[in-house]
Amino acid sequence: MKRLLLFLPLVIAVGVGIFLAAGIGKDPTKLESARIGKPVPAFSLENLNDPTQLLDESVLKGEVALLNVWAEWCPSCWDEHEYLMWLSKEKGVRIVGLNYKDQRETAFSFLGRLGNPYDEIIFDPKGSLGFDLGVYGAPETFVIDANGIVQYRHVGVVNKQVWEEVLQPVIQKAKGNS
């Protein structure tokens, strides 16, 4: 018994080691979204392309869609844009853009240079919908199911790997449910 007790520090050290090792490689800047499983918050914001038209949460209903939060001032948005173009053109994914704390002119020049992968673009210059969604840094991409329920949030750049490993399975699941 006494002999066995001598191994106690070793056991504790190994236990703590396993516990801490589980945290290594996790990105601490990626937070769980508090919105998952809840409907997209109600909003009424201008269409980027048409200031006279107001968009509301119904643009995110009826079909599984990606809600991509972007802005011209956001460097990573420039990086991910070609993948959004690819998703929209090649994969036929419905992407709704949320132009976040941006200006119309800069947003247009961004789209003019890189192309427009969005079916609709919500213009949110004050970031009010972004705030309600818990957006803390662009780019962020939400998966919204056909009932307008948030299924997933991805913080950071969308690329081929993220699509294949993360977003596509979530979308498949969302399509299966509705």
Binding site: L31, E32, S33, A34, R35, F131, D132, L133, G134, Y136
Partner: peptide, 8 residues
Amino acid sequence: LVGRFGEF
């Protein structure tokens, strides 16, 4: 705020 951004 927790409802928006999570318990973090």
